[in-house]
Design a protein around this nucleic acid. Structure first.
Lengths: 228, 228
DNA sequence: TTTTTTGATTATGTACTACAAATGAAATTT
DNA sequence: AAATTTCATTTGTAGTACATAATCAAAAAA
């Protein structure tokens, strides 16, 4: 194992600051008391006193939970538990410039895996209207400038995710786009598989799910060929 | 569109608190100045003064970035930009009890999509040693009590993710496990496909990638059949 | 001269007080 | 009874003070 894995295997034993501990304790508290979205929380002073910390420290911890959308506060009404947007938090740290190359590669592969697995959902939920729209997108890209190639790529594959009928999946894909772009930009020559977007549309129209899976595999083959 | 989508389409125009704004401004600042991991940041008082807020508010924002692992601080040395653990942040909000049912369903499907798309990575990276270990796992579950069925499920599919050679993917799967368990537990009768774990192992040994994809599809078919 | 020790310095961590702003509830007026 | 005003309460922000710990440099010892 390389040294980079060490930090993943060995989490620090204790959290350094009080705010860290308070955050953990608050999470435990919310779980233990099985608070549900909408439930009101004790006020800051009570929490601070119960935890034996200053209101300052407590508010640092609360600020974190608030950022994640776990709690919402109003001036006099106090705090209530809320439903966090699970992807919103993800988005905050998804910057290709910050992520290490290993993880970048992992995410690139993750995207490929999603794309390959998408077929099953697609063949459950695709509609004629969807396919028509997808075809329109594919048609527009026939004589497009190379500068816009990435844009059309995004539009086409984005539509595929949309057709999956899974909002979370679609948002997730949108979120991963910058990573994907970054990785593709790093590649030297433009990658193009033997199966074009229009081919995929035709398969969706008339072909079987297995046909589509094979088609998608050919379409993404240049990317897979780079993997080891 | 249902009302639940409105909040996703229409984000609030202004962030309520100063801490929210400071968090945003700090992110912009880090990006604009293209700080890299390891770079030192100005000290709290300077930042607070520059932003025109109290040190208190600034620290609430910093606390958030610290939670995400974007910055690290030491007593006198000051703050340095760090590499956030992209999945660690995700984990914090992934609680089946908090997530709404729609998103739960989405994540359940996401897991299925991943599982189906895994084959391509597996056939690039699988080793004989991996397959032996996987077979050992599959053998152990032949006469296992129904209580432990879920555990063996986890072990087997977990090993598959491990064989993908993609750490992020594996961690992601581990993270989604509670959701998956929850959803499976909600299902009434235990789902079992026609293709067993042992069958999948045999396919990995001798079969083609397409065989494996078909096998996995049959294995997960009961889950897919519940989708609409 | 080199090493060790000591101490000053400095940035973060925590506590506390004070007040502003908002808002729900109670009291008052019509 | 309805509308208005006042009051009380809770979060949001500012500012001060001090604790803590890490760094660097100077002083002392070898």
């Amino acid at each position: 194992m390389a040294t980079s894995d060490l930090s993943k295997d060995l989490a620090p034993i204790v959290s350094n600051t009080m705010a860290d501990m308070v955050e953990i304790r608050l999470r435990e508290y919310l779980k233990r008391k099985s608070f549900r979205p909408g439930d009101a929380l004790p006020k800051e002073l009570e929490l601070a006193e119960a935890l034996g910390v200053s209101r300052n420290v407590l508010r640092e911890a609360l600020s974190r939970l608030r950022m994640l959308g776990m709690i919402e506060t109003k001036k006099k009404r106090g705090m209530v538990l809320a439903r966090p947007d699970i992807l919103g938090t993800f988005e905050r740290v998804l910057d290709p410039l910050i992520i290490d190359t290993g993880t970048l590669q992992d995410i690139f592969e993750l995207r490929l895996v999603l794309e390959m697995g998408l077929a099953d959902l697609l063949y459950i939920r695709k509609t004629d209207k969807d396919i028509q729209e997808l075809e329109a997108i594919a048609k527009k890209e026939v004589n497009v400038d190379n500068t816009f190639r990435i844009k059309t790529e995004i539009a086409f594959h984005g539509k595929l995710y949309e057709m999956s009928g899974n909002d979370t999946l679609k948002r997730f894909q949108i979120m991963l786009l910058p990573i994907f772009d970054y990785m593709v930009a790093v590649e030297q020559q433009p990658t193009r598989g033997d199966v074009t977007h229009m081919d995929l549309v035709q398969i969706l129209k008339n072909g079987s799910k297995e046909d589509f899976k094979r088609g998608m595999e050919s379409h993404l083959k240049p990317h897979f060929d780079r993997l080891k």
